[in-house]
Design a protein around this nucleic acid. Structure first.
Length: 264
DNA sequence: ATGGTAGCGCTGCTA
């Protein structure tokens, strides 16, 4: 089973490229973020014609998350699970069971600046994400959380850490909250296969950052041990960041061997 | 040096 995540930065603008990419890569499950669409504008029929069921949680203009699957979509939870606390006013998380794996598509708040209220929102959002996982899943089950975390886990995920002193995406507090998700039982499925530096998933549109190699690895695929044991390969598809009208993010793809032992 | 681009939607916000 091939799973993937991609912050598409407007599905309205990016749909042709997303269709092309799906045709090339044929993921079984694709999580998207920043669709920037209302639910009634989500192109479910287009994806259905490609063989995918889909669920979308959008608000229009900003945010918006989706899951596409050709291995089934059941047990859909839109927004945070009620047991985790108050619902998020933004459309940043949707969860569903796909092919025996519980999948969450997440768009973690950016944070903007350490002294901004939005940064406190980011921290509380990450804390609630853990409570959400307790409400919908278990560390011993097959659970994947993937999306735009807006956190570079380590300095080696940042093109120049000196430029990010006292910035969001690298602060100790948000990295600690990410570590607590690891403590819950999630591992970074890209890092499982690539112990290398300077591999990024996002590059600012400005100043030729992509072609200058100035990026961050902030799009993550996290999986419980039951999923990590099945993960045979992962790749960040930099080609999707090239060419005409790209998203500022590249997709992250993880391949899982078929689950022959248990399925539910 | 506080830039630079992209998307949304129409003025400035968000990233």
């Amino acid at each position: 089973m091939r799973i993937a995540t991609w912050n598409v930065n407007s599905l309205k603008v990016r749909l042709p490229r997303v269709e092309e990419w799906i045709d090339q890569v044929r993921p079984d499950v694709l999580c998207m973020q920043e669709t920037k669409l209302a639910d009634d504008a989500f192109p479910a029929l287009t994806f259905a014609s490609l063989g995918y069921e889909s669920v979308h949680h959008g608000q229009g203009q900003w945010n918006g998350v989706a899951i596409l699957s050709r291995v089934g979509i059941t047990d859909v939870v839109t927004n945070f699970a009620p047991a985790s606390g108050d619902p998020d006013p933004d459309a940043r998380i949707i969860t569903a069971a796909c092919g025996g794996v519980l999948v969450s598509s997440v768009y973690v708040p950016n944070g903007r600046a350490l002294d901004n209220d939005h940064y406190q929102y980011k921290l509380s959002w990450l804390a609630q994400l853990r409570r959400h996982l307790d409400a919908v899943g278990s560390p011993t089950a097959q659970v994947v959380v993937m999306g735009d975390f807006n956190i570079a886990p380590e300095d080696r995920d940042v093109y120049d850490p000196r430029k990010f002193v006292d910035s969001t995406h690298v602060s100790a507090a948000e990295r600690q909250l990410l570590a607590e998700l690891h403590g819950w039982g999630l591992t970074d499925l890209f890092r499982q296969h690539h112990d290398v530096d300077r591999v990024y998933s996002w590059w600012d549109y400005r100043a030729g950052d992509f072609h200058q190699g100035r990026g961050l690895r902030i799009d993550l695929v996290l999986g419980t041990t039951a999923v990590a044991d099945r993960a045979t390969w992962s790749v960040i598809d930099r080609n999707a960041r090239k060419g005409q009208s790209p998203s500022d993010h590249a997709p992250v793809v993880v391949d899982l061997v078929d689950d022959t032992v248990a399925s539910s």
